[in-house]
Every structure is written in C-alpha cells, then in structure tokens.
Design a protein around this nucleic acid. Structure first.
Length: 522
RNA sequence: GCGGGUGUAGUUCAAUGGUAGAACGCGAGCUUCCCAAGCUUGAGACGUGGGUUCGAUUCCCAUCACCCGCUCCA
C-alpha cells in the first residue's frame, strides 16, 4: 500500500502530465482561474468523447429497451420545486461555531437568557492567544459562569498544541447581555451560530429580459429531471413498453462549497444517466442487475474490478427518494471516491411531478389492464470522474534501460485502446528521405478516416515512440526502407507496428493495417 | 465554510530589495536505418491588485487559484 505522500506525489505527476500533454487545463487560467472549473484540451476531449461514445453505444445503440434524450440545461423552477431541489435547500442556514452542525435559520427556537461574550482566549505558559469572538447563551436561572466550559471547549479546539488542556486557558470576557427570544444560539449547546446564509447549491438565472419572480430558472443540478418531465412524451413517441429506460449524457451544475481533487468535484460536470422505468416489484432486482452491468462496463473500459468498491449506502445516508443505493467507488490516489450511484428511486419522481403539475404520470399495462406510476432505477455515472479515473488508472512509470545501459523512466498511459485519444502514430523512419515521407503520408491518409492518427517526423524514432507512450497511443507504425522495397519485394508495403505496452514490433502489410488496429479498438 | 501550505518558462526546480538561471520539453536546421543519441539555433516565466521603498519577483496586506486536513456533497 502506497503511503499518503506517495499517493499525493503520484496525483501531482498526473495533474502536471494532464497540463503538459493537453488533457486538462485550469479554466480561464490566464485570468487567474475559475474555482472548480476545468477545460479539456485536445487529448482530454478525445478521451471524454471516447468514453461517452462507448457508453452511448452500449446503453442506447445496442439495446432495444433504452432510448436517448438530450434535455435543456436551463430548467423551469417548478420542475425543481417538485423534485425537492428548490424547497429544502434554498433556506438560510447557519452553522454552530462549536459543533459545526448546520441548522435551518427559521427553525432555531427562540431562547432567553444571558449571553456571555468573549473576545478571545490565551494560554499563559505557551504565550499562545487567539482573538476570535465567541459567545454562549446561558438559559435564565442558570449560573452565567457555566458558559466558561463551553467557551474553553471552543477555544481549546484552536490550540495548536493539543496537549494543552482547555482548562488552562484564560478567557477574555468582554460583555454580558440579557436577551429575550434570540435565535442566534444553538439550543443544544448554547454556542453562538454564524449569521444566516443562503445555502443553495443550484445556479440561478433569469429567463427573458425582465427579472421578476416568475422568470427564475436554474441550471440543472442533475440531468435526471428532464427525463422524468419528458417521460410521457418519450413513452408515446418511442412505442416502448415497461421495463424500458431513457438515457442522457449532459452537463449539470452544482455550486459546490469546496471543489476539490482536480476535476473530481467541480461546479460544472457531465453526467451519464439512465432512468430505467419498471414495475415497483422489479425495482430491487433491477437495481442489483444494473450494478453488475455497470461494473462490467468499467472493466471493459480498463478499470479493473479490484480497483472498484461497492458501497451499499446504509439507511439514513441515502437521498430522501431512494430505498436502495449502491455507490460504485474507485480507488483514486486521493482516496476511494464515488464514480457512479445506482439508485432505486421508487416512484418518487414521477409521482411528485404528477402531483405538482396536476397531470398524473401513469403507465397503462395492456396485459394486466392496470394503471400505475412506474418506479425507476437510476445508474448515474459521473463522466468527468470516470475520465479522471481512466487517467489515474492509465498512468504508469516503468524503468527501462537505454542503449547506453543507463536506467531511465518511461512514462506510459496504458489506456484501453478504445479509450486512447490517439490510436496510431505514423512515422517515416527518417524525414530527409522523401520516399519514406511520402509513403508515411499515404499511410496516414489511409488510417485517418477510421481513427485518430498522429503523424510525426521530427527527432529520432525512439523519441517519437516515447512521446506517444506519454499520451497512451497504443500503436505506432513506422515506414522504413523495407516499406519502400529496398530490401526485397516480399517486405515492400509492410510497416513496423510497435506496441505501446510491450514495445514489441511486428511487420504488418499496409493494406491490412486498418483491420489490424481496428480489431483492437472494439 | 474552518485550519494549514504553495504560487517564478509548457513541466520540474533555482537565485535575488537593483539586468531572473538551469534541466527537461517545444520550434527551426544539420545529422541519424527502430526506443527520450549528437551538434547549431530560436521562442518562452516572477498569479492579480494595493502598500512600504529611490527601486519589490523578493518585505507587508488583500485577492484569486491550486494542494493537504476537517466540514459539506440534496
């Protein structure tokens, strides 16, 4: 098991490789950067597209029972009120300064008593002091000095030396006041609360020229809602029967309090979601089935099962709408973190939208002659998180001995070929031999319509191989003197194909090259 | 949101209260018959804004961003 610092160091190398080679850049870097936002460079864009295309291929194109949707990002406020995104999370919240519990400001009960205010605290022996303001409310009838214990606890947490007992602290009390019906203190411990703050993770905007209450819209916080809201339209136009799914890939936005870990938690991110609708009695079984199917998907794109962890989210930690949720987590260098949630959302969403709009969303089962609100199982994958996992998983350093017998490090991105941003490098062995260059350009033209190819004629061929290693190109084709027939007709029109992982070389006929590489990209 | 740390070239690092260096990488040229070879040559940086100062990349303050530990993640 790698130590924390080794894992941090590995992550730093990955981040700098992403920048250096053009996978991922800080958004608006030349203006100082925009917190929690990232741009994909030329290679990152390819990786991300390959992932999305493969997901779409497997879940929509190759399945009869799932259809696609591409919903708008701007979302009607009523949609998000019905889903619960607006109601519960737009209220002002305050935090307890001592326990850090977050409370809804309008639900803090009114209390009366003596507020004891402190300007700070100090520790005589070590000379340490702090001037953070704090206060404790002592209920009427109790000894006001009992506030000291709470205050010592508060300031004690700020002590740099944890061996110092909070009891040794000198408190700097600066005033006492009698308060009636105050809501500024935590009822469970008397500690001061922060000022109430708006706490809504959604980005709000207004639609149209006038910006009244009615024009409020939000950037969607998840792609799922447009699927629920369009359920009836999709059902009618696609001629699907239960069970069936609606798939969507698209951007979602959350104003995260603290974006972290490179692209892992960003404010703008892309989701790949399926809402798979079914009868209520099939919900739990389908949740388990989808979990297995999704695990296989990750293996197919090059994330081995042993690097994935399945978390059966316990009661109380699941979202309010879910009665069963599995998180699929990946072992990132910065910790085990979620890639995808497979949640059984019951009939919560369709029912809520039916109630809120006054237009019930029901499905009529011809055979059973019954009408009901479908339930839904949702495998919801984070696209950017998966790209990051693919990059972390691909990153490898290997020690090789060069021709002078010196050891050096070869950095290789071991992407699965179907994920790799560039599929094949094409090199003339020497750039000052026009016949080689011309032939190499022919090979590039042959492959380009089929896959992303990178032509390179600068520097020694070994360097060109290493450049491709670092961006994960699985194959390189080198055009040499054999190719142009200088060493006999039997080798004419063959190229050297060099394999990224083994560094082995093999001769392949040019006309067989598309099939040779193509077969490894499926 | 709290606490700590870091911002110098594309990357990784130096040095400095008075002209900012290197390595690797990148571009051009020469050379080269398969794994980062060599030679010549070129481009390229003090996150941003204030303050102190004759003068600030350096000291101070603020801000922005990133990293680490908590917290949060409907």
């Amino acid at each position: 098991m790698a130590t924390d610092s080794e894992r941090n160091e590995r992550m730093e190398k990955i981040v700098s490789l992403c920048k250096r080679r053009g996978f991922i850049f800080q958004s608006a870097e030349m203006y100082g950067g925009l917190n929690g936002c990232w741009d994909y460079g030329p290679l990152g864009a390819e990786v991300k597209r390959n992932l999305k295309d493969y997901w779409w291929q497997k879940n929509v194109i190759e399945r009869d029972d799932i259809v696609g949707l591409d919903g708008s990002i701007l979302t009607h406020q009523e949609v998000l009120k019905a889903s619960g995104h607006v109601g519960g999370f737009s209220d002002p919240m305050c935090d307890c300064l001592l326990s850090r519990a977050r409370l809804r400001a309008d639900q803090v009960p009114e209390q009366s008593g003596t507020a004891v205010w402190y300007a700070g605290a100090s520790h005589a022996d070590s000379g340490w002091s702090v001037d953070t303001e704090f206060a404790v409310l002592v209920p009427s009838g109790k000894d006001a000095d009992s506030a000291k214990k709470t205050a010592r606890q508060f300031y004690g947490e700020r002590l740099p030396d944890k061996k110092v007992s909070p009891k040794e602290l000198e408190l700097i009390e600066h005033k006492r006041e009698e308060l009636e019906a105050t809501t500024r203190f935590n009822p469970s411990n008397g500690a001061l609360l922060t000022e109430p703050r708006e706490f809504n993770l959604m980005f709000q905007t207004s639609v149209g020229a006038s910006s009244g209450e009615g024009s409020i819209a939000y950037l969607r916080p998840e792609t799922a809602q447009s699927i629920f809201v369009q359920f009836k339209n999709v059902l009618e136009t696609s001629r699907q029967k239960l069970p069936f799914g609606i798939a969507q890939i698209g951007k979602a936005f959350r104003n995260e309090i603290n974006p972290r870990n490179f692209t892992f938690r960003s404010r703008e991110f892309e989701q790949m979601e399926i809402e798979f609708f079914c009868r209520g009695e099939d919900g739990l079984r389908l949740t388990d089935e989808w979990l297995e199917r999704r695990l296989s998907f990750y293996e197919e794109i090059g994330i081995p099962r042993e690097k994935l962890h399945i978390l059966d989210v316990p009661d109380g930690e699941r979202a309010h709408y879910s009665s069963k949720t599995y998180d699929i987590e990946y072992d990132f260098p910065f910790g085990i973190q979620e890639l995808e949630g497979v949640a059984y959302r019951t009939d919560y969403d369709l029912r809520k939208h039916g109630e809120a709009s006054g237009k019930p969303i029901e499905y009529f089962d011809e055979q059973a002659k019954e009408k009901f609100v479908p339930h839904v199982v949702e495998p919801s994958a984070g696209c950017d998180r998966t790209v990051l996992a693919l990059i972390c998983e691909a990153y490898d350093e290997e020690t090789v001995t060069n021709e002078k017998g010196k050891e050096e490090t070869r950095t290789v991105m071991r992407f699965d070929p179907k994920i790799a941003p560039v599929k094949c490098g094409v090199f003339p062995l020497l750039k000052n031999k026009p016949e080689l260059v011309a032939k190499a350009k022919e090979v590039k033209a042959l492959l380009s319509p089929l896959m992303n190819v990178f032509y390179d004629e600068t520097a020694a061929v070994g360097r060109r191989y290493r450049r491709q290693d670092e961006i994960g190109t699985p194959f390189c084709a080198t055009i040499d003197f054999d190719t142009i027939g200088e060493n006999g007709p039997e080798l004419a029109n063959t190229v050297t194909v060099r394999d990224r992982d083994s560094m082995n070389q093999e001769r392949v006929k040019i006309d067989q090259l598309p099939a040779y590489i193509g077969s490894k990209l499926v």
